[in-house]
């Protein structure tokens, strides 16, 4: 099989299109690159959707945690604590078995027992909690003068939030949020190793890398391939977030305009 044929056969294997039978022996480099790359579809799917959905919930949670009302503040605090304080891995397991037992009573939960929706749901809540904490920290450090200026212009309520507080919060939170995005993509590899089942060997990149490492008993090929894909993905994330950062800071004087410096600290 030439490399091109391998790519057409296995390129979309992880979502069930193309050749169903995985290679069993005589693995070529091309097969490993193609299948692991195909698995990346899942990682990107989980990461992108969880980020986009989580962003909105995170804003709400951060506002809730910063609010004066007891009934808004306490649930937000508990939400953030629960998801930041426990391992994502256990969250996956718990969610899977929770959905499994709920499924018996409410058919509504059936789709959530599959990795595609259930794991996404867990990742969504998880990233919302982490991001919520970042946004909350940013809300706390909005310069007092900005808010006073908004008051002086007669802005209040939602207008003040939309035009002053929210953009400033995003600007302050953006470097940390970029980190969170990078680590979220890393966390997506856990989805198929936590309880959620893999149907017909349609797994993510780590699943295929693990498959090859188990079959060939040689970890020195598949895992570096996986690592290469993730470094590429990280660079793309940094690039995209850098663009948004430039836009968020576009009104600032250009020479003071700091470039987004990514110093990935551990967040999770």
């Amino acid at each position: 099989m030439t490399c091109w044929e391998t790519i057409t056969a296995y390129g979309l294997r992880s979502i069930g299109i193309g050749e169903q039978l995985l290679p069993r022996s005589d693995f070529t480099l091309c097969q490993q690159f193609t299948l692991i790359g195909s698995g990346m579809i899942w990682n990107i799917y989980f990461g992108v959707f969880a980020l986009v959905l989580g962003f909105f919930l995170a804003t709400a949670v951060a506002m809730g945690k910063a609010s004066k009302s007891f009934w808004l503040r306490k649930p937000s605090e508990w939400f953030i604590f629960a998801f930041r304080g426990s391992p994502l891995f256990i969250q996956f397991f718990f969610a899977y078995f929770l959905f499994l037992s709920l499924k018996g009573q409410f058919p509504f939960f059936t789709p959530l027992t599959s990795a595609a929706y259930g794991a996404l749901f867990v990742l969504f809540l998880n990233t919302a909690a982490y991001t919520g904490e970042i946004f909350y920290g940013a809300l706390q450090s909005i310069p007092k003068g900005d808010i006073e200026a908004a008051d002086a212009y007669g802005l209040s309520g939602f207008t003040r939030f939309r035009r002053v507080i929210w953009p400033t919060m995003l600007r302050l939170a953006w470097p940390a949020y970029t980190n969170e995005a990078i680590f979220l993509f890393h966390a997506t590899t856990l989805a198929f190793f936590g309880g959620f089942p893999i149907l017909k060997q349609r797994g993510d990149a780590l699943y295929y890398a693990n498959y090859f490492a188990d079959k060939t008993f040689n970890p020195f090929v598949p895992y570096p391939i996986l690592a290469g894909y993730f470094i590429l993905l990280t660079l793309v994330v940094i690039g995209l977030f850098g663009l948004v950062n430039t836009r968020l800071n576009r009104h600032l004087p250009q020479e003071r305009h700091k470039k987004l410096r990514i110093k990935p600290q551990v967040i999770r």
Partner: peptide, 21 residues
């Protein structure tokens, strides 16, 4: 920088075999 840029779980799976070998 290498260890930081890659999902830690991939390292766990990698090192157990790699160290053993």
């Amino acid at each position: 920088s290498v260890v930081r840029g890659i999902p830690d779980i991939a390292f766990f799976l990698f090192f157990v075999i790699a160290l053993d070998q």
